[in-house]
Design a binder for these strands. Structure first.
Lengths: 181, 181
DNA sequence: TAATACGTTTAATATATATTGAACGTATTA
DNA sequence: TAATACGTTCAATATATATTAAACGTATTA
């Protein structure tokens, strides 16, 4: 086995693992492989080069790159004299993790919170509505109480994401392991 | 509009929002709706009742319940004299969030770490192999350095998940907002 | 024991999503 | 200007996943 072959084979193992687990970021293995291709590449790549390497269509590459841009996992690169768009990974794993929460979780927290608040308001109206049956009003009360627990959680989650965004989380869980005493 | 109708409509909004955003937990909207059904139910439900409420097959309910059990989002309930299996939500949003990391993220971290470690070992061999070309050995060195950065990140992530599992994270981001001074 | 009532598995189907080739718009070059 | 080289969009297709009906195994009841 020659050196290059050994290199490719060694890389293949982590590419496979990373690509498979990339679903935690809400992307497919294909997109994961593209990310890995860029990760191991020693230079920015064009859509045509990606297409060539992965044996996929240019349209796919265009879409895949866009999802990666969305997640802040890659960025455009420029090089004098090159007209094609070039892309490189933003090789900061911590930032990648934090960005996931800012891009995906934050909007979800916001949506859910708004929905819950609006619903609680409606349920309170129902509870105060004399025309409603006792049973319905009772259920409204129960729902309100359950939903308020959710609000507490979403507020917490929002504050947790704040500590990701500000990187304050690193004060609590430091990047480097503590030295053993 | 009568009370019950108002109740259903109020619930529908949060059900929709929650179900849609449940993809962050790696489950489909259908499973999300089942979760919400159980959440709002005032009693444990059987597969047949779920099937009835959601208009889906029993097989679907069986599979959906299993994913929710997997994520620790529901649990079995027993009631004297009832032979059918009964299920209720585990209505602890915080625990639900922590469990996601223990069930999904932790194994991913573990898999990726192992793959990376094994690959680094192979690359080190390659780097020390006199027969390999200088170019390949150089690339191996570069890869090793990049992969070691990932190891630092995964180690950190593992420790972060530790703070979820032990709930120490709540020391840093408390459940209740701090009172304003 | 036989008969019934469960939940699960399996194989088939329906649905959603990923992927593609071709058409399109825009910028660059000649 | 016309011609070429891009990246993107769109409609068609391929693939993966969700969903189902039917078969199955097990426990319970009579």
């Amino acid at each position: 086995m020659d050196g290059n072959e050994a290199l490719q084979q060694a890389r293949a193992r982590v590419i496979e693992a990373i690509s498979q687990n990339m679903n935690l970021y809400g992307v497919t293995p294909s997109i994961g492989r593209l990310y890995c291709l860029l990760f191991f590449s020693d230079k920015p790549l064009t859509l045509d080069e990606m297409k060539e390497e992965l044996g996929m269509s240019k349209a796919s590459m265009s879409l895949a790159v866009r999802s990666l841009l969305d997640l802040n996992m890659v960025e455009k690169a420029w090089r004098k004299g090159v007209r094609k768009d070039l892309y490189v990974v933003k090789d900061d794993s911590f930032q990648r993790f934090f960005d996931l929460f800012m891009k995906k979780w934050r909007p979800a927290v916001s949506m859910n919170t708004k929905a819950i608040e609006k619903t609680i308001a409606e349920l309170e109206e129902l509870d105060e509505n004399e025309a409603a049956s006792d049973e319905d009003r009772e259920r409204a009360k129960t729902d309100i109480s359950k939903l308020q627990n959710w609000l507490v959680y979403y507020d917490w989650l929002d504050r947790l994401i704040d500590t990701f965004e500000s990187k304050e989380i690193l004060d609590f869980v430091p990047m480097e392991k503590k030295e053993k005493d």
